[in-house]
Design a protein around this nucleic acid. Structure first.
Lengths: 138, 138
DNA sequence: CTTGAGCCTGTATCTGCTACAGACCTTAGG
DNA sequence: CCTAAGGTCTGTAGCAGATACAGGCTCAAG
């Protein structure tokens, strides 16, 4: 019973999209930009995906959810693929990204305060004077 | 003493860029997308800007700083330009944008927690086990 | 007159997708 | 068997919001 079966039947692009919730076209895009491998093809030229591809795509999607750029994801993946990544290397990428996120939060909070302060002064009535415009003008 | 002088000498594109801190090419871009007017031209075809343009560009830049999209800015400007804007209309645009900002802050804070929790588990050492990758993989 | 700087235009590049056109291939129904 | 509907293939265009660069003009100084 030598089974070298992939244990799951291969799927096409639409099936991978359904399995992961990823947009159909985005999958092809991820292949062209190198965060997904070029998949094997059926004799008719159709892409044939297996469980590996599902896991890989989920990794990419989760990392994108966390705001990693495709560039950063390529970095993480090359560490994974080389099999000689260290915790320190991965931590460096993730920490740098964490700092970006934290900086962005601070920026947005500053914007949020400025905007809500300004909006709070609005009468909301049908008058042509407007503190929002006054704030944006001089 | 009939003075119809613009009270300030006109300037060229680079001078407007310097006066506002805006990137030179971005000024032309703002003209093509309609948040800045097509300026009058000198006989040689050079753009000629006055104080109006400085104020307008500052308005656009401040609104961009606050995260308004160019589309939203076009909306605000058409209200300003029509001179029949009401506080209620402007408040509507600003409030909608404020909500976007607040939503984005919540999203980023969720990401920030997930990332910092994960990074905190890193040994940061030369070992191949990495909780960041474990979190992104299954 | 020459040289270099500044300006002009159109177009390319970037990120991260999304969508569409036109050509294949495959499958089900009649 | 033929046809029609649907899936897949490729290349390409489009979105925001800039930024950059190439190849021509023009202008002022030396």
């Amino acid at each position: 019973m030598g089974k070298d079966h992939p244990s799951v039947k291969p799927m096409q692009r639409a099936a991978l999209a359904r399995a992961t919730g990823c947009n159909l076209e985005t999958i092809r895009y991820y292949e062209t930009v190198g965060v997904m491998p070029d998949p094997p093809r059926d004799p008719n030229g159709y892409r044939s995906y297996g469980e590996d591809h599902v896991r890989r795509l989920r990794f990419v999607m989760r990392a994108r959810d966390l705001g990693f750029s495709l560039e950063e994801i390529r970095g993480l993946l090359s560490l994974v693929d080389s099999h000689n990544q260290t915790c320190a290397e991965v931590k460096e990428i993730a920490s740098a990204h964490l700092k970006d996120v934290q900086d962005k939060i601070v920026d947005l909070q500053r914007i949020e305060r400025a905007l809500s302060d300004t909006v709070a002064q609005c009468s909301g009535t049908e008058v042509p004077e407007c503190p929002v415009l006054d704030a944006l003008l001089d």
